[in-house]
C-alpha cells in the first residue's frame, strides 16, 4: 500500500515535526512552481518505498508563508529533513531520485 504524504499546516506543523518517530522530510512547495511539480512523483515514490524509515510531508508556502519564513525558505522547492524535531538537512532546488536518495542515505537503514 502506498504510504500517503502528510499535509502540514500551521495547525499541525510543530506537533507533527516534534512527535515524529522517523526523520521527516518537509517539501516546501507551491502550485505555481514547475520544479516542485517535477519532484512530486519522486517524493511519492520515496514515501512508498521508504515507508517506516522516513516520513514525507509537504507544506504549501502560499498558504503558510509564516512557516516558510520561520525556516528562511526563499526558494522552492526547498526540502528540509527534521530529525527528532531538529533541522538535520536542507536541500534547495529540485533533484532526481538517485541524487535525493544519496542525500537521504544518512537517514535510511542500509538496505540494498
Amino acid at each position: 500500500m502506498a504510504q500517503s504524504i502528510t499535509t502540514l499546516t500551521s495547525a499541525n506543523f510543530d506537533e507533527t515535526i516534534g512527535s515524529s518517530d522517523t526523520p521527516i522530510l518537509v517539501d516546501f512547495w507551491a502550485e505555481w512552481c514547475g520544479p516542485c511539480k517535477a519532484i512530486a512523483p519522486v517524493l511519492a515514490e520515496i514515501a512508498t518505498e521508504q515507508a517506516g524509515n522516513i516520513t514525507i510531508a509537504k507544506l504549501n508556502v502560499d498558504d503558510f508563508g509564516d512557516i516558510a519564513m520561520r525556516f528562511n525558505v526563499m526558494s522552492i522547492p526547498t526540502l528540509i529533513v527534521f530529525n527528532k524535531g531538529e533541522v538535520a538537512k536542507r536541500l534547495v532546488g529540485a533533484v532526481g531520485k538517485g541524487k535525493l536518495l544519496q542525500e537521504l542515505a544518512e537517514f535510511l537503514p542500509n538496505s540494498h
Binding site: G34, A38, P77, V92, G93, A94, K97, G98
Partner: peptide, 11 residues
Amino acid sequence: GEPSSTSDQPG
C-alpha cells in the same frame, strides 16, 4: 532527463 531547478530538466 531528471528534475532540477535549472533548465536542464524534463521539458
